[in-house]
């Protein structure tokens, strides 16, 4: 799977409260509305600026905090195709693959906002087309890659009728 897109850059410790603030708790049953506030507490303009296919690049511990799956879901609804960070919080990581939003772990320091990236998910290769360099991300575990290829856990279950974690 090849993903191409433009970068929005964030720092360390972007929490689920930055992504889907508690004050919009009442919008959790209305995800398209909630998505209008995606990442509002990190960048109030983000929801207006983001375009389908864009890529989020961040620092350490992206998605820390609550279990709210609404956080990766509204990032996906906003059109983001992939998130690359130095590290991810574990519930966010798992939720993202479950809903079919791929995440890559790599040293993101050299990537800047506005860069164009081309990503090979299977190989974990990130090309910065703007700056002309290549990064190798940590490999995605085979089961997680299968979830992305299936289109998320819902489709996975429809396909296999169960979890298929073995090779």
């Amino acid at each position: 799977m090849i993903i191409k897109g433009r970068v929005w850059k964030f720092g360390d410790d972007i929490s689920t409260d930055h992504i889907a603030p508690g004050r919009y708790f009442h919008l959790r049953t209305n995800l398209p509305e909630l998505a209008k506030h995606v990442l509002e507490d990190a960048d109030p303009e983000f929801a207006k600026k983001v375009k389908p296919g864009d890529i989020i690049v961040a620092g350490r511990n992206f998605g820390l905090g609550s279990s709210r799956e609404h956080a990766p879901r509204i990032i996906k609804i906003a059109g983001v195709s992939c998130i690359i960070a130095k590290s991810f919080a574990r519930i966010f990581y798992r939720n993202s693959f479950n809903i079919g939003l791929p995440l890559l772990t790599a040293d993101t320091d050299k990537i800047d906002e506005g860069d164009e990236l081309e990503i090979d998910l299977e190989k974990g290769i990130i090309k910065d087309l703007t700056k002309g360099f290549e990064l190798q991300s940590q490999p995605i575990p085979p089961f997680m890659l299968r979830l992305i290829q299936d289109g998320g856990i819902e489709e996975h279950i429809k396909k296999y009728g169960d979890f298929k974690v073995e090779e």
Partner: peptide
């Protein structure tokens, strides 16, 4: 352990 809605739904 804590998980997302879909995990717990399953």
């Amino acid at each position: 352990t804590g998980m997302g809605s879909t995990d717990v739904a399953l």
